[in-house]
Amino acid sequence: MSGWLKDKGHLARMAGLFAFGITAFLVFRWVMVPPGFGLYGHYRAGALDDARARPLQYAGRAECEGCHTDIVEARQGSRHARIGCEACHGPLIKHAQAPTEIKPTRPDGRVLCVRCHETNPWKPKGFPQVKVADHSDNGPCTACHKAHAPKIS
């Protein structure tokens, strides 16, 4: 051999080995590490989009109030005014997307009202509670109380 590589064959082999090692590492890394990993931290940035992609089930109160203005009016000033619609009516995004095709079922007052208003020592003292068995002769709650404005006037 002549020139600068004279008697340097061992260095050339070493350099070749290094070059191969580094290339193999970069290729391995490129294959194994998913896109976006490390963009915000030690995790895959796409996981944020995955979490964001879940479909909605609850439409949200604003969505309901856009159409049901009569109910907004009926609830005004009532003690139930601040309760979200879907707290009682259930998840209704499908109804919000197709208002005429999908109709929500009317909630059962004997289950729903009782769940919140049955007397129970765990409930905060100021919360309106009744012993349902003594209170109503087993009639429907809605015979006396309107669900959207429960005070009997």
Binding site: L48, A51, R52, A53, R54, P55, L56, Q57, Y58, G60, R61, R82, I83, G84, E86, A87, C88, P91, C116, F127
Partner: peptide, 23 residues
Amino acid sequence: CTLCYHRITKGLTTACCETCPTG
């Protein structure tokens, strides 16, 4: 719990807060 990440990033509140009757 994801704090309903799919909801809060769309300007909605979480499902638990949406349905809590007493706030």
